[in-house]
Design a protein around this nucleic acid. Sequence first.
DNA 1: TAGGGCGGTGGAAACGTTCCCAAAGGCCGG
DNA 2: CCGGCCTTTGGGAACGTTTCCACCGCCCTA
Lengths: 356, 356
Amino acid sequence: MTTIQDVAMRAGCAISTVSRVLNGSPHTTEATRVRVMAAVDELGYRVNTIGRSLKTQKTGAFGVLIPSITNPVFASSLGGIEEAARTAGYDIIVTTSNYDPGRDGEAVEALLARGVEGVLLTVTDPATGRVADRLAARHVPHVLLYNQPIDPAVAAVTVDNRRATADLTGEVIARGHTDIGYVSGVFGSSDRARIRYAGYCDRMREAGLKPQAAVEVPFVGQDRDFVAAVARFLNAPTRPTALLCSNDLLAIRIMAAARTLGLRVPEDLSVAGFDGIDIGRMVEPSLATILQPAADMGRQAVQFLFALMRGEREPATLIMPHTFRPGRSLAAARGGTIAGALRAAPAPALNRKTIP
Amino acid sequence: MTTIQDVAMRAGCAISTVSRVLNGSPHTTEATRVRVMAAVDELGYRVNTIGRSLKTQKTGAFGVLIPSITNPVFASSLGGIEEAARTAGYDIIVTTSNYDPGRDGEAVEALLARGVEGVLLTVTDPATGRVADRLAARHVPHVLLYNQPIDPAVAAVTVDNRRATADLTGEVIARGHTDIGYVSGVFGSSDRARIRYAGYCDRMREAGLKPQAAVEVPFVGQDRDFVAAVARFLNAPTRPTALLCSNDLLAIRIMAAARTLGLRVPEDLSVAGFDGIDIGRMVEPSLATILQPAADMGRQAVQFLFALMRGEREPATLIMPHTFRPGRSLAAARGGTIAGALRAAPAPALNRKTIP
DNA sequence: TAGGGCGGTGGAAACGTTCCCAAAGGCCGG
DNA sequence: CCGGCCTTTGGGAACGTTTCCACCGCCCTA
């Protein structure tokens, strides 16, 4: 490996001079600058990031913890994160928890050991994990993504999950449904699932309807087990006319399972999701859902993290806007009326706001 | 930050002793071991990876370059990669080219500057990019993933794209289709797209059919442009009865576009993809495709990379097995016969093999 | 012309770790 | 009982970089 030492020798100057030239220090002659750069080119020298990091205590990298890479909503946000990081000259170190609450902690420890300058994280549960606390104790800047922070002192970028699901539930009710079920990933693996369920309950009660118990299904299991679990539920005589799912991937799997069971969506069962993944627009029937701007949330989280690193900003929760995306998976209830749909007040648009 | 120095002071011994205990050197007393570990716990000491890396010239990280995180097939392989890396105690640094041939090079440079010990890469084009050459020149272990290497001295994990597409084309022909089109991502952005097209041509000619010109569509563009481009093609009177797509995501988008245009799949148009992404089984109609074991390919590539790092193995191309996954998107041609399907010889199973 | 200031440069310490080498202590065998 | 060997420990150099400090000319001004 060619080092700064070699360059100095070749250029006939001191190591410190080379370093100055390389870092664009003003105290340097054009002549030496040219000589040094020539030596750099001839030797094919490239600065060693490790040596630099050791001295400067900066690694130029931050960590990202997400539950899963294969869920398109996290893939999208990761895409936004990667882009924003690259633009700023930062590298990202990606790690996953696979929805396992225990792995949140070790994953963050591993990131810390690597010397990341900050961490972006979507934890399984901010209430029980206390991962953010450990980061705070170590003074490592961090931003929660998708999670709703327990402690307002923790920075976060999310949508108003509760309100959004309430809005979505309102859309379903407006289409004449009264028997509306809720299917969810395991509550212990996702605070979003819990919060969204609460939003569903809010709106149901508001409409004078009885919220149903959430059906928790294992999110990462085998397909066969999944279909079996769903079948037990959908074949029951008490099957609802509409089903809210805690996320789009789940909704799409449910639709596929329903088809397997001989149910037609939306004629026999309306389905709605949450996330707004692209694929939801391409499936048949297209999936009604709440759209959250995943890639943009990732980008925003990165900007937020940088601000925190520079000490420019106090931690705050950034609530991103959500929108209802209609889809053919959600139809009027049998016997429901267009008039009923028109009577229902449309959900007011939520604008981005910062809660200090 | 607490350093090894602090621990040594606390434990009342030398820095080197602490280092030995931490690294599990045999030359160490149980008593000192206990004393050191106690000091470590009390001080909450964690080894500084930067300092270690500087000394050992090992970073414990390798780089991953993929075209896009949001394509599920790359997300899946990335999932496999992440898992395998984590198991081995390695971190991964992820970067994307967004199918831009120019960005392959800079991305790899960035990874190298960070001091990765190896690189896993899916480049846009191994023929023109010569990225692998640069890695070889710098003696950085690297494995191509999904790409078919030009130079057999370059390690790679892939499927037999040409043969696989030929197999798939055979399945379509066996269902009585003779007018079979091919839609593809831009050839310049993907060697897979080109090679797969060649496989399609092979099998068409073999069956005495005329291969059609590939329709290249911009893969990352706006949805509106995409639909417009596809519409021009699908509304033409020369529309084929079956369409092969260079990947699943494209196939799913095509199916959605076809629906928008009032075409029924598979009644008016059969569609087949390539990749075997999960979502393809959940869309309606389910997508006929070639399944490549994405996550497993990622894991294998990691193992391969480790072997290369240890100098254990000569570079070679690992061809993973592919399988045809039937789907309702592919039906018998109007006027096609079951007998015709039966007459067609089934594609022989491909087993994994290593080309030395 | 002499002195002061300043721009450019070189030397060296420091970052946190690993690991080689030497020294010290204990134990065993002669 | 003493010498030698082996085990354990300490000291210090090295990894590649940044950056502080000191030094040396040069130029400008008095």
